[in-house]
């Protein structure tokens, strides 16, 4: 599930250019003159920060081949950091879920050779030249994070709501309409592969919720739904 940090090089236009986003992705906020620090590495020359409905993208102003991106669903935590004893510049601090639980090894692994392994970077700092923008960036970050919930999380949460009666009587069609209502706010704002995820979620729900029923029968049901 967690994708971690990755290289972002798709740009168009002259000079530093503009990032190329997919058609169902909306640019929510653009912040010029933002420096970035990955993990324990030093601050990199300023670039431009883009926050879209799906991801955070930072593009170097001077080097067209340099840019990073991380999906919001991979960002575990973000915060405003102002204590200059802990970090010299006020910044947005973010923790990235690398899908690797062994956190201690992250920084050493990524520094052990010359090539930076972006997927192992577990934290980053965004340092805007104008630190009065920090609270705005934090708020936009929150807003975007809320646009990108985990599909898995919704299943778990909604397991609590289904009663025994509902599990027995509800067919896939009934689930569908309910889920459309629940999901509409996110899927209408360019949630990636909205339809696929929806189908996947409903499928998972059937498997999880009707766990008291004959498991073999459920497998058949999911197969036929897949086909």
């Amino acid at each position: 599930m967690a994708g971690g940090l990755r290289l972002f090089t798709e740009r168009t236009g002259e000079g530093a250019g503009e990032p190329v986003f997919s058609h169902d992705e909306e640019l929510i906020h653009l912040q010029p003159s933002v420096a970035i620090a990955l993990g324990n590495h030093s601050l990199e020359a300023p670039g431009t920060l883009y926050m879209t409905s799906r991801q955070v993208v930072w593009l170097s102003d001077s080097d067209r081949s340099k840019g990073y991106a991380v999906d919001f669903y991979s960002v575990s935590l973000h915060a405003v950091s102002r204590d200059q004893e802990a970090y010299p510049s006020p910044c947005i601090y973010a923790q990235i879920d690398t899908g690797d639980d062994d956190e201690e090894s992250d920084s050493s692994d990524s520094e052990s050779n010359d090539v930076l392994d972006l997927s192992k970077i577990s934290e980053l700092r965004l340092v805007p030249e104008d630190d009065s923008q920090l609270d705005i960036l934090f708020d936009v970050f929150c807003e975007c994070a809320e646009l990108n919930p985990d599909p898995i999380e919704r299943e778990e949460e909604h397991n609590w709501i289904f009663s025994a009666e509902q599990m027995v009587t509800d067919g896939a069609e009934v689930d569908d309409s309910e889920w459309n209502d629940v999901l509409a706010p996110t899927s209408s704002i360019g949630y990636s592969n909205g339809d696929n995820d929806l189908a996947h979620t409903v499928l998972q729900l059937q498997i999880n919720d009707q766990r008291f029923e004959d498991p073999e029968e459920m497998d058949k049901d999911s197969d036929s739904a897949n086909a």
């Binding site: 575990s76 973000h78 915060a79 405003v80 601090y93 934090f138």
Partner: peptide, 16 residues
């Protein structure tokens, strides 16, 4: 987690 000392407010993703 000394680096987290500087943080006074934060947003935590529900799934983590």
């Amino acid at each position: 987690y000394p680096h987290m000392l500087s943080v006074r407010n934060c947003f935590i993703r529900g799934s983590v």
